[in-house]
């Protein structure tokens, strides 16, 4: 399979005050292949949203390189940079905030459509896009607040599709939606993927949703990827203790966690909560190693 994205040693630090830095992403290595749905699971503070924004370049990493179809995106300029922008799009979590409240829906979706076409053609394309996502085109000149949450998310999807992208980052796209609406949006994602040959980076904290839609999945904890691999491997046979904790919490099965102190900040980030931890874990950061084919984990105990 063709490799679409490749991140190596990517870190992102935020400078809060003098001397105080928050590490949103810490030494991330990730590959995404064309045509797959790659899932990213994590809780708040894991860095998953930051990763979504860093990969397509709307946030710059502090360190590391990101390659799109073999090219370093930091070196792209002008037309090529514009090309990257058009090929990779993003859909946000909150449908109430991701649309400009002062723009009509048709205008918003039209912004991404090719500029060389005439206005009539552009409007025609907008109509097609809105129909594809299931929005009644009679309402295309309305404002966002006149639509429901589910409809707004569809509009955001139409906007993302307006540049004919090949890759879309979906940042918690259904977390703010009702169950029945979520079901429709998930179906829509699958349909669009088949129809338009899309590749997705699907970010969520909801394991059940991720389990349904992804092919491969990575688990993030405090800025690091702790485990990744094929969905079946990671979900049915979780290796990292954090992954097991996430899965059992989601299904409301009790799991014990430890409560240890960390004197230093070195070592494995999960050490304070880990039941299997040993002294070694508090001293060195575990490396990512492959166990079975395609299944990687960063844990000293599980190798």
């Amino acid at each position: 399979m063709e490799k679409m994205w490749s991140m190596t040693n990517v870190s992102k630090q935020y400078h809060i005050k003098a001397g105080q830095e928050i590490s949103a992403l810490d030494d991330i290595d990730l590959d995404i292949y064309k045509g797959e749905v790659f899932g990213l699971i994590g809780e708040s503070g894991s860095g998953k949203t930051t990763l979504g924004k860093v990969i397509i370049g709307i946030i710059e990493p502090t360190e590391g390189k990101i390659y799109f179809k073999g090219r370093d995106i930091a070196e792209l300029r002008g037309k090529e940079l514009l090309g990257l922008r058009r090929e990779s799009q993003i859909i946000f979590q909150n449908p109430y905030r991701s649309l400009n409240p002062r723009m009509r829906v048709a205008e918003m979706v039209m912004e991404g459509v090719k500029r060389d076409a005439g206005r009539v053609e552009q409007r025609e394309m907008v109509r097609d896009l809105l129909q594809m996502v299931g929005i009644d085109i009679e309402n295309m000149d309305n404002y966002p607040h006149q639509f429901s949450g589910g409809e707004r998310q569809r509009i955001a999807i139409a906007r993302a599709l307006s540049t004919s992208p090949s890759f879309i980052v979906c940042d918690e796209p259904t977390s703010n939606l009702d169950l029945s609406v979520q079901a429709k949006i998930l179906n829509l994602f699958m349909e669009l993927k088949d129809r338009l040959n899309l590749t997705y980076l699907f970010i969520s904290h909801n394991i059940k949703v991720v389990n349904f839609i992804v092919d491969r999945v990575a688990v993030m904890y405090k800025g690091k990827i702790v485990e990744y691999g094929k969905k079946e491997d990671v979900m049915k046979n979780p290796l990292h203790p954090y992954t097991s904790l996430l899965i059992s919490s989601s299904f409301l099965k009790k799991t014990d966690i430890a409560k240890k102190d960390t004197p230093d900040k070195k070592g494995c980030a999960f050490y304070p909560l880990c039941l299997y931890a040993e002294d070694m874990c508090a001293k060195c950061v575990p490396e990512m190693k492959e166990t079975t084919k395609g299944h990687f984990v960063a844990c000293l105990k599980r190798i």
């Binding site: 169950l179 079901a183 998930l186 059940k208 949703v209 349904f212």
Partner: peptide, 17 residues
Amino acid sequence: LIACLPERYTSGERIRT
């Protein structure tokens, strides 16, 4: 509503909305 829960489906299926 229960049929909309994603955990009731396997990969590749469409959710019955």
